[in-house]
Simulated assay, not measured.
Amino acid sequence: MTRGSNPNPAAQLSLLQKRLYLTGAFFALAGLIAAGVIYAMAPAPDAAVSQYSIVDPRYQIELQQIGGNAAVLIAQFHQWFDSLWHGTKLAWTVAVLGIALAGVCFFVGHFFAWSDDESQN
């Protein structure tokens, strides 16, 4: 009997697969709840921060003269990466990381189901 013909596929799941699926569901739910709480409690963005950022043309010109175009690109990347860990962007980051961890758990659980099918044939 193949896995596809069983009306109750959950009955054939191994204990490891069940744990991986439950862990994935936990990560997804916890990530979304945490993201909602962070989003609701995030402070308003500070106007002073945007004044002294990489967007300022004087800063970009000086940085380009000192380190070249690569330095400007690295500084922009660094500022973008730093912005992911504050305010509402942190909520989106937590949500994406929670969903990604859940996806990894579901994929690994599905991989074990696929490898069990191959070993039975």
Rank of each mutant, 00 (worst) to 15 (best):
A70S: 13
I38P: 01
S119D: 15
A102R: 06
F27T: 11
N69H: 09
M1Q: 10
A95P: 04
V37Q: 06
H86G: 03
F26R: 04
E118W: 05
Q76T: 07
V72P: 03
A48C: 00
I38N: 02
V104I: 14
A10R: 15
L29P: 01
T23I: 04
L15R: 11
A44D: 08
P9R: 11
G31Q: 08
N6T: 13
V108K: 01
L63A: 09
N121G: 12
A91L: 08
F26Y: 09
M1C: 07
P57V: 07
L84N: 12
K89C: 01
L32F: 12
A113V: 07
G109H: 04
P57G: 05
H110T: 14
L101S: 12
L84A: 11
W85I: 06
S50Y: 12
H78R: 10
M1L: 09
L20S: 04
D116I: 00
Y59W: 06
A42L: 04
A35K: 04
Q76D: 00
A11I: 10
L22V: 11
V49F: 09
A75D: 12
A42E: 01
A40G: 11
S14D: 06
F112R: 10
G103W: 03
D117Q: 14
S53R: 08
S50T: 11
F111Q: 14
Q17C: 04
G87F: 10
F81H: 12
S83M: 08
F111D: 07
I61N: 12
A48N: 07
S5A: 15
P57T: 08
N121Q: 14
T2K: 14
W114C: 02
T23P: 00
Q76A: 11
A102W: 03
Q17K: 01
A75M: 05
Q64C: 03
T2W: 00
T2G: 15
I54E: 07
L13A: 13
F106H: 06
S119Q: 13
R58F: 06
D117T: 10
I54F: 06
I66C: 01
A48Q: 10
A75V: 05
Q79C: 00
I33C: 04
Q120P: 00
P45G: 00
A28Y: 05
G103N: 05
A48W: 09
L15Q: 11
R3G: 10
I33E: 03
A48G: 04
W114E: 01
T88L: 07
T88E: 10
H110W: 14
M41Y: 02
P7W: 09
L73E: 13
F106V: 11
A11T: 08
V108C: 02
I61P: 00
D82A: 14
L97H: 03
A47V: 09
I66M: 09
A34Q: 06
L63Q: 04
Q12A: 15
Q12P: 00
V37Y: 00
I74R: 13
A40P: 01
W85V: 09
A10E: 12
P43E: 00
A44E: 10
I66V: 11
Y21L: 13
Q79W: 14
A35C: 07
L20K: 03
G4L: 13
Q65V: 02
S119A: 15
N121K: 15
G103P: 01
S119V: 12
A48P: 01
F107P: 01
